[in-house]
Amino acid sequence: MIEMTNVYKKYPNGITAINGLDVRIDQGEFVYVVGPSGAGKSTFIKMIYREEVPTKGNVKVGEFDLVKLKAKKVPFLRRHVGVVYQDFKLLPRLTVYENVAYAMQVVGKNPKQIQKRVLEVLDLVGLKHKVRMFPNELSGGEQQRVAIARAITNMPRVLIADEPTGNLDPETAWGIMDLLEEINNQGTTIIMATHNSDIVNRVRHRVLAVENGRIARDQEEGVYGYEN
């Protein structure tokens, strides 16, 4: 499903963030990406939805060959890959409802379908009662849940989350985690970069440890393995 072979990424400033990385992730997996700060986790993740393009090597996501993918086709890749950002990236001028609906308008869904589905996912993340609020009227955890709702509304095959629990209190973080589990149970691949050892150690899944731009450890039902 997702396949990276011999991938290198050197940023224009000369930093080599990914340094010969190989990995294969199958449909339906739940994968934690762990590793020290600056190891290249975010860079690795950005290459999956083509916010960054590798300097060398191959990246395949489903039928998309991301190295050969034309700029014009990138939006179509992104519709298959839902992304949850650490800083949420919600549209500030749109309400909660409109933020989620935006992702569906982009695809050209009709207003009836959109309304039904948006309310459905907002119900799933427990925010149905706040549809008319603007992002700046929500708490961090609530914004993160809107971001998740938006990421899954088009039923992507892959959901990527870069530190989705990064700046949330433990309880809210667990709430988000339950949500991701539920989404994974419906068959969506989940790739989650995290520094949360508690979550990684208690809800066991495959662990990819990234160090110096390479996979240092690839372990089914793995542990976090770093001192925080």
């Binding site: 014009k72 939006p75 890749l77 935006y102 992702a103």
Partner: peptide, 16 residues
Amino acid sequence: RTEIEIMKLVGATNWF
């Protein structure tokens, strides 16, 4: 501009 970047990341085409 951040809004535009976000729209792009959510899968909107340039013309959209």
